[in-house]
Amino acid sequence: MFELTGKISLVTGAGRGIGHSIAMALAEAGSHLVLCSRSRDELESVAQEVRALGVKALVAPCDVTDAGQVQAAVDAAISEFGAIDVLINNAGMTIKKPAEEVPLDEWQKVIDVNLTGVFLMAQAVGRQMLKQGHGSIINISSIAAKTAITGSLAYCASKGGVDMVTKGLAVEWAERGVRVNGLAPAYTETPLVKAITDAKADFADRVKARTPMNRMARPEEMVGAAIFLASDASSYITGETIMVDGGWTANGF
């Protein structure tokens, strides 16, 4: 049920953090990889790791906010492999500022990367999946789509939008064989979160105290849900977002 041998998976934000962990897990499950992010050097390093597992890797640098670059990455994937079976829409960013201090350009950048980027990549890959008659899209959401995070209004708004993009695409494409689901982590030990914890000495302690499991997630803990949603094990699931949050959203405290 979890078989991915010979499948083609495209992962955005694949150079580090959650994207890197999911990319490696897909490779271990037998999938070939199309690796996307803005940093070619990071992608080349990941590609070496992937190839060491005996599967193929295509490096396709891409800014997900640029529709032309998105389409070029998808075209490269089709040229190389002839299909795309799985999309992990992972690229993302945040800013931490009080809402009243957020400049419009910073708000727009977060929305562009986290929401518009998800739409552009899902649309471009979705066209190919619709031609194929099958595919699984997994959009990386966040606890911030369900609960307000202080100082992260743009991020919360963008991830709430991601959840609705997930539902909307799932409903539109269900009859044509394309499933669209989400995966929503809580605070995870990634470079993005490290930048926040480095800037705020008590931040990690406050996050742990708010989380029933009393710790942050590790990037590799997102892997199980991703493989489940990518594979036929979830063949009758679409339009759902799985919370991988250590109990954060269940906690009424």
Rank of each mutant, 00 (worst) to 15 (best):
A233V: 07
E220K: 12
T116Q: 07
V59K: 00
G135R: 10
V11L: 08
T147C: 13
Q108M: 12
V11M: 09
D63A: 11
F2T: 02
F253M: 15
A226Y: 05
H32A: 11
I196T: 12
I111H: 08
I84K: 04
V244K: 00
K146A: 15
M1I: 10
K200F: 13
V125E: 02
A23G: 15
M24Q: 13
G160M: 06
V162F: 00
H20T: 05
V223W: 00
C36I: 02
S141K: 07
K208E: 00
I84A: 05
I18V: 11
N114P: 03
A184C: 04
A186G: 14
F81N: 10
T5Q: 14
D41H: 11
S235E: 09
I140G: 09
M93G: 10
V74L: 07
G182S: 06
L115C: 08
W107D: 00
A72W: 04
A72M: 08
A157R: 04
D245Y: 10
A217N: 11
F119Q: 07
R127E: 12
D63M: 01
M24R: 15
A76V: 06
E28D: 14
R179S: 05
S142A: 09
D105K: 15
T147G: 10
Y236G: 03
V64R: 09
A209M: 03
I237A: 11
V178Q: 05
A148N: 12
A186C: 09
K200Y: 13
Q128G: 09
T94H: 12
T94L: 12
W248C: 06
S45T: 15
L53D: 05
M222F: 00
R218D: 07
K96F: 13
M164E: 12
I8Y: 02
A60V: 06
C62L: 11
E101S: 11
A52H: 06
V34W: 03
E101N: 13
E101D: 14
K96G: 10
V125Q: 04
A77H: 09
G151T: 02
C62R: 07
R176K: 13
S31P: 03
A73S: 14
V74P: 10
D245L: 00
A145V: 06
D112Y: 08
R179H: 07
N89M: 03
M1L: 13
V11T: 12
S234L: 08
T190H: 08
P212H: 01
A230W: 04
E175N: 14
V180D: 01
M164R: 14
L87F: 02
I84S: 05
C36P: 07
T116A: 10
Q108F: 08
P185Q: 01
